[in-house]
């Protein structure tokens, strides 16, 4: 087996003269790139939070000192410095449960999520159990990114399911508006929905009822994600055999009973990998909320570095740092969802 694999690999690298020269060219390029990259990122890099030493490097080596100096502001935004353990713990909890949910999605996790959500909100907001109260306007960084994505998806899913059911309805007065909403939202950029949430929601709400920027942005994210989730759920619904519905009808189940107990559980299970992908997209999309002045991970980085002349020249290192965080989360989740898909594909 091992010999077989090696010979295949050899054939795939040096099978023909053309192939062999291509391989050599790539190896040469990789070597050149890796040595330069390694030199910049490690060998010539400055790891201590020493702005003078970083400046002296003149970008010939990375200045990781900026991360050493600013990591808490980048990761947690304006959160009070002496309370940093709270968002750190909240982030760890969210990431752990997120990983678990992608690895082994099952119904029991709903309760785990409910508990973790309560704990995370308590940790961030405080005001009980001896934790100092911290207003939502001071939340930021990675926990805010995760919170926005999770709350966005959690809010968008029910709406998406209703829209998907509505779009498939035989009644035109229901299917047409649902379809119109889905297509409308999918046709416009997220930024425009965030503007809608930020500038127009205050006008739509009745007088006397108001809402903070976090709530408004969350509504914008939910309205946006729901349209995409609706299409994902619709894909799942279409994959459920028609016979299921007929059998349910034969058993005397009504429309909602059929959907709730027969069709939806199957459809959602079928759509689960696609739902997981939507969630990963949402994590990336939350970076856009910085445009309406919420300081999630991307915004927190700008806030941490732009106002500090010592560290302003080292944004690239900051970008690479948070890119690595986004990448690790998104890549890990996509791998986990793939594993889940493969595991399920086996009978």
């Amino acid at each position: 087996m091992a010999i077989g694999a090696t010979t295949t690999l050899r054939a795939r690298l040096f099978g023909s003269p053309g192939n062999a020269s291509l391989s050599l060219l790539i190896v040469a390029l990789l070597l050149w790139g890796l040595t330069h990259g390694l030199d910049w990122a490690v060998l010539s890099a400055q790891f201590r939070p020493d702005a003078e030493a970083c400046r002296a490097l003149d970008h010939a080596g990375a200045c990781w000192g900026v991360i050493a100096e600013k990591h808490s502001q980048i990761l947690f935004g304006r959160y009070p410095q002496q309370e940093m353990w709270r968002p750190a713990l909240a982030t760890a909890l969210l990431l752990a449960l997120l990983g678990q949910s992608f690895l082994r999605p099952r119904a029991g996790l709903v309760w785990a999520w409910a508990v973790v959500a309560a704990v995370v909100l308590l940790l961030l907001g405080g005001g009980a159990f001896g934790l100092a109260a911290v207003g939502a306007e001071r939340w930021g960084g990675l926990p805010l990114t995760l919170l926005l994505s999770l709350a966005g998806i959690a809010g968008a899913l029910p709406l998406g399911v209703l829209l998907a059911l509505g779009r498939r309805s035989a009644l035109p007065a229901i299917s047409v508006p649902c379809g119109a909403y889905i297509e409308l939202v999918r046709g416009v950029p997220l930024v425009s929905l965030l503007f809608l949430a930020s500038f127009l929601l205050p006008l739509f709400l009745p007088q006397g009822l108001t809402m903070g920027v976090l709530g408004r942005v969350l509504i914008g994210l939910i309205l946006f994600a729901a349209a995409y989730l609706a299409e994902v759920v619709r894909g799942g619904l279409q994959a459920v055999p028609e016979a299921q519905r007929l059998q349910a009808a034969a058993l005397g189940l009504g429309y909602w009973q059929t959907q709730r107990w027969v069709i939806l559980p199957q459809a959602l299970r079928l759509a689960l990998p696609a739902l997981m992908n939507s969630f990963i997209s949402t994590i990336k999309e939350t970076s856009v909320v910085t445009v309406v002045s919420l300081y999630e991970l991307t915004g927190a980085l700008t806030l941490a570095l732009a106002g500090d002349p010592d560290w302003r020249p080292f944004f690239l290192e900051g970008y690479l740092f948070i890119a690595a965080i986004y990448w690790l989360i998104c890549f890990a989740l996509s791998r986990l969802s793939l594993r889940f898909e493969h595991r399920r594909a086996r009978p």
Binding site: S23, I26, L30
Partner: peptide, 24 residues
């Protein structure tokens, strides 16, 4: 058919689509 080229292109895809566009 070249494994190195295929791997390199695969790595590109995995790196660039898992980082938010705004950040890029």
């Amino acid at each position: 058919s070249n494994a190195l080229l295929a791997g390199l292109c695969g790595a590109y895809v995995e790196v660039f689509r898992n980082i938010p566009l705004l950040l890029q």
